[in-house]
Design a protein around this nucleic acid. Structure first.
Lengths: 250, 250
DNA sequence: TCGAATTTGTGCGTATGTATC
DNA sequence: GGATACATACGCACAAATTCG
């Protein structure tokens, strides 16, 4: 029966997907049951099942045992600006400006001294086991957790200075660049490496997500004259946020 | 037969997974065929199949039709540089330099005129239905598909010029900035919005993945004096690549 | 409260196509 | 060409959860 090119279950999944994305199957509606799919498309039970599985794997629908398969809501992700660069003229129509999440909501943090792991040591260009200050953050936006961050700073840089603890003292909570400048460390570069993966159970617990949700992971490292002075892992739920960069060309 | 707690296919998948992660089934080795799994675990063909599918969905193994199911290598994701900024001094120890994927491998493309959808029109600051040139790319790195890209350019900018078709003429395949410069459009800004989601079945088919795998999606827009001149959706498999930005501070 | 119908999730057996060795 | 193995497909069965009369 497969005289066509594409497997039957992909054809069925594709048709249902089209109905979902074009809005004829809006969120929270039930899509046809396995039995109805079988009838309407003239396919077997296995094909109908496999097609549903494809859509579930894509996160478009969610199966509820005994009830049905429902179209999931997909909120438009908001943008989190990740670059200090801003256009010079005030009136440019960059979309970015419209929906930027204000960098500062509320946050909690906890700092502790630790020894640099292999991975952190490499990122900070120190030896594994060197003392670092490790700080964990939970950032909230309107009460809702929007990102987790774990930051490491070599004590070789901040040790025995007023800014050793990121969230204490007169410059507490001021940001890496400002704090470093206070001890005459001029941050002039930053690298951000953006990856993505399924969120870990603990992360999604903190972020109010569901197991299987995707998270963005930003590995950020600040440099002062080529020397790394801080590195951080930022974990962001990808269904609610994206990260935006604005760069000059040439 | 399911007197245990968890489904049989999960039990089988779990046992095989353990052998993979603890190294007794190293990369490139073949795991037992469906028939052998059926015998060794005393389960049906369906369960053996389902167990293999779980491992494939997790990206741990890869099925090769007619040959077997093989344990995949799990390389550290490589970095794709997304910014033209480079440090001035040649000897800086930025990790970024070490593993950058060379921007140009091989690629295929197909262009066609189309009408701007609502979303594309907004990104290009044109009216929905305006004519645009739509080009789809598949980029390959050592033969393996590493990213998909769909690009839109308003014909109001490139129409009736030598660079209307991105991949033809003397500047074919030269990149947006160069092509635009040839018609006196000076690209001076770019925004990149990075999100992530489960890949669609067709995307993962093209990228050699499996339904459910995570992809990074970069929405890139080039601007010339505040006017959008090109926008693109770049789809990248997140298990193999991450995107790297290198930015000056202040 | 009870029970019947529906629906998903899981499992079984089989058949065929097709890629690889 | 033949043997092997995966990929797709069909049909069926049953348990658990949900819904509804």
């Amino acid at each position: 029966m497969t005289f066509g090119e594409q497997p039957a279950y992909l054809r069925v999944a594709g048709d249902l997907r089209k109905q979902i994305v074009d809005g004829s199957l809006p969120p929270h509606t039930r899509l046809p049951s396995q039995a109805r799919i079988r009838e309407e498309y003239g396919v077997s039970d296995t094909v109908a099942l496999e097609a549903r599985k494809v859509l579930m794997a894509e996160g478009l629908v969610e199966g509820r045992s005994g009830s049905g398969t429902y179209v999931r809501e997909r909120p438009v992700p908001r943008r989190i600006a990740r670059s200090g660069y801003r256009p010079e003229s005030g009136a440019t129509p960059f979309r970015q400006e419209q929906a930027d999440v204000e960098a500062r909501g509320t946050w909690e943090s906890r700092s502790e001294q630790a020894e640099a792991s292999l991975a952190v040591a490499e990122r900070l260009a120190v030896k594994p086991g060197d003392r670092v200050m490790c700080t964990r953050y939970v950032f909230r936006e309107a009460g809702e957790a929007m990102m987790l961050s774990t930051s490491w700073e070599p004590l070789a840089v901040t040790g025995r200075t007023p800014v050793m603890l990121p969230e204490e003292g007169p410059l507490g909570g001021m940001g890496v660049v400002e704090r470093m400048r206070a001890i005459d460390v001029i941050v002039d570069n930053v690298t951000e490496e953006v990856g993505a993966r399924p969120g870990l159970a603990e992360e999604l617990l903190a972020l109010g997500g569901v197991p299987g949700h995707v998270v963005l992971v930003v590995q950020r490292t600040y440099y002062a004259s080529g020397r790394p002075v801080e590195t951080a892992d930022v974990v962001i739920p990808a269904d609610r946020y994206q990260v935006a960069y604005h760069l000059p060309v040439r």
